[in-house]
């Protein structure tokens, strides 16, 4: 136990270098998504754009928002929200595609 109240710092919190590396990855992925959008991929345009966006958001959530290093309860709650949104998307998609 500490002598005085200190911040609940996680020992495995990443430093400057690691975060800059994540930032470089995010910038590269943005450039890739812009470049890919210029190609004629037809029906795959939306898919590739969403896959890249999801990779980027996973990095932001896990590293920048510290979900990966925090108490697992945050990860669980976050997953529940994403799952809820996913269900809403899928049910709506079924409705509009097979009406």
């Amino acid at each position: 136990m500490e002598e005085k109240p200190v911040h609940q710092e996680h020992k495995n919190s990443p430093g400057y270098g690691y975060n800059i590396l994540i930032w470089l990855t995010l910038i590269s992925l943005t450039c890739v998504s812009v470049a890919v959008a210029g190609l004629d991929l037809g029906a795959y345009i939306l898919l590739t754009a969403l896959v890249i966006a999801t990779i980027k958001s996973t990095l932001v959530i896990n590293i920048f928002m510290h979900i990966k290093f925090d108490d697992p309860i945050f990860k669980l709650f976050f997953s529940l929200i994403i799952f809820t949104l996913f269900v809403l998307f899928v049910l709506t998609a079924f409705d509009i595609l097979y009406r």
């Binding site: 345009i45 754009a49 932001v60």
Partner: peptide, 19 residues
């Protein structure tokens, strides 16, 4: 602040990358 960034990550391809 990261949430603001997170939402933009999806707004950007859905509005700007639609050629």
């Amino acid at each position: 602040w990261h949430l603001v960034d997170l939402i933009w990550i999806y707004l950007f391809p859905l509005f700007y990358l639609l050629h």
